[in-house]
């Protein structure tokens, strides 16, 4: 057994029932080299303060619920290791650009509304009956959108994008990546409806190509590229709609 090492974890606490504003608290947490920041936070809850609130589930970077600002950078706390920071202090804060509900839990209702608005499901071009069989898709057609299906809705990209806070109605990188995912699907016929949203004042032009969303994405979805591709798509439609109206956009 190696000797017990201690890491200082500074947590931004916010207790809506008693605090006017968030404040920092520092905890000294014993850790082993295989411990993630999430496990460090769990240690605090189990041993120091049971009221510490945070979201987590899978511990393997696929559920997308344990995102936190770790030393100011949006990360999944389950795949971020304490050993990489030791002996420096680790600061942990709720994901930026979202309202803090309590401690490390943010209010995601705005994001959920945006996610619903982009209609993240296939709207069939031509509804088929069971008898007519399945929707056929070639590997090349599948390759068009596969990258965007990797999104786990962890919203790290929103915590990376200043515009999601500066313009709270902005659809944002993650939802735009999913919008693009369905638009690029050969089975889908909902593009016109979705582009109405992308081309609106809440849409893609709120983005100024900061690009940090794609940097922090743990699944390499590249939501920033999805947003920017749709600036071109919406821009083409803006100028060409008089020549070849496709409907949908008003």
């Amino acid at each position: 057994m190696s000797e017990q090492k201690i890491i200082e974890i500074e947590v931004l606490r916010y207790l809506p029932e008693s605090d006017q504003a968030p404040h920092s608290e520092v905890y000294k947490v014993p850790f082993t080299d295989d411990m993630s920041v999430l496990q460090g936070v769990q240690y605090i809850k189990d041993n120091f303060d049971g009221s510490l609130t945070f979201r987590w589930s899978c511990r393997m970077a696929i559920c997308g619920s344990c995102g936190m600002m770790i030393n100011g950078i949006p990360k999944l706390s389950c795949e971020t290791f304490i050993r990489d920071y030791y002996p420096q202090r680790i600061s942990v804060e709720a994901l930026a650009h979202f309202p803090i509900e309590k401690d490390l839990v943010v209010d995601l209702s705005g994001f959920i509304e945006k996610l619903e608005a982009i209609q993240p499901y296939i709207i069939p071009k031509e509804p088929r009956t069971v008898e007519e069989g399945e929707y056929i898709q070639t590997p090349a057609q599948f390759a068009e959108y596969i990258q965007y299906t990797s999104c786990i809705n962890c919203v790290l990209c929103y915590a990376a994008c200043p515009h999601t806070a500066l313009s709270p109605d902005f659809i944002g990188p993650g939802a735009m990546a999913l919008l693009h995912r369905y638009n690029m699907d050969s089975r889908d016929g909902g593009k016109a409806q979705r582009m109405e949203l992308a081309a609106s004042e809440d849409g893609v032009y709120n983005c100024s190509a900061v690009g940090y969303c794609s940097e922090v994405c743990p699944k390499k979805v590249d939501p920033g590229n999805a947003v920017n591709i749709n600036k071109i798509n919406a821009g083409m439609d803006y100028f060409l709609r008089f020549l070849s109206p496709k409907g949908g956009a008003k």
């Binding site: 809506p16 504003a21 100011g72 309202p99 209010d107 806070a165 900061v210 940090y212």
Partner: peptide, 20 residues
């Protein structure tokens, strides 16, 4: 409801990260 979501200020956001 005891909910009171806290909205953090965006002042100086761009100084917080070398990327910004």
């Amino acid at each position: 409801s005891k909910r009171r979501p806290y909205v953090r200020s965006m002042d100086g956001w761009w100084k917080k990260n070398p990327y910004y």
